[in-house]
């Protein structure tokens, strides 16, 4: 709590928002598969698999998070900043190309239909027992998407003293919101503007990563922490310009 008080509100606020938005995207993708598994093979097995994966991920996060405090901050900022940059710019690049219509958008409804069909094809286990196929499918997707959430929480939390709690709060809020909506609607959240979220998260992570790598290297940012806003705004402007340019540029042969 003392650490949280020492962190500036610029960092705390942007960390919560970045963690929430990034986790929201991953949770929506996991929910689609868990819903497909649950609707075809039974909710008990699907939820057991997802819950087991969440327990493993929580244990990993609880083990790794505190260990970071033992490493000097500038080393973490350089290492984690580099990873955040690679992750964020990868998302941003793909989101720009999707927004420009150069690659297909991710379709949650199509993913749901595909996973539902796959679940119907697998053999069933005896009634009453946990369905191993369903448990494994729900466990795998929750682990896969959850690993990205854990990485993001640890990465965002490692950017400064006292940021692990705000990063965790953002992720837990996203998980609670997606789980709540999934339980209420029992259908994939296809209306969530996934590419727009990835676009925004890519911009935020690119800004964070650049700031941290610079701080870790000992560079002096104009305006201190406020430079994060400047970097995020600059990346956003460049990304929006790129969408317009990529959309209007002549098409290639695709070969």
């Amino acid at each position: 709590m003392l650490g949280l008080l020492s962190a500036s509100w610029t960092r705390v606020g942007t960390t919560v928002v970045a963690s929430f938005l990034a986790s929201l995207v991953e949770c929506v993708e996991a929910l689609t598969v868990v819903l497909a598994v649950g609707s075809v093979r039974g909710w008990r097995s699907a939820l057991s698999g997802a819950a087991a994966a969440l327990a493993v991920l929580a244990a990993v996060a609880a083990m790794l998070g505190p260990q970071l405090r033992r490493i000097p901050l500038h080393v973490i900022q350089l290492g984690v900043g580099t990873m955040v940059l690679l992750f964020g710019l990868r998302w941003l690049r793909k989101a720009i190309l999707r927004a420009a219509g150069r690659i297909a958008l991710h379709d949650e409804e199509a993913a749901y239909v595909k996973n539902t069909a796959a679940m119907r094809q697998s053999a069933r286990t005896s009634p009453g027992a946990l369905d191993q196929v369903a448990v494994a499918a729900a466990f795998n997707i929750t682990m896969l998407e959850g690993t990205e959430v854990v990485f993001l929480v640890i990465a965002l939390g490692a950017g400064g003293t006292g940021l692990l709690l705000p990063a965790s709060i953002g992720a837990v809020l996203a998980l609670a919101m997606v789980a709540g909506l999934g339980a209420a609607l029992h259908r994939p959240l296809a209306r969530v503007p996934e590419n727009t979220l990835k676009f925004l998260v890519g911009v935020l992570l690119a800004g964070f990563g650049t700031f941290w790598v610079g701080e870790g290297a000992g560079f002096v940012w104009p305006g201190g922490d406020v430079a994060i806003f400047g970097l995020v705004t600059a990346y956003l402007a460049i990304a929006l310009l790129l969408v317009a340019t990529a959309r209007s540029s002549p098409m290639g042969t695709g070969d």
């Binding site: 720009i96 190309l97 150069r102 790129l242």
Partner: peptide
């Protein structure tokens, strides 16, 4: 990178 991929890709 984005402009290079945009030129190469088809809609």
């Amino acid at each position: 990178n984005v402009l290079r991929h945009a030129r190469k890709s088809r809609r």
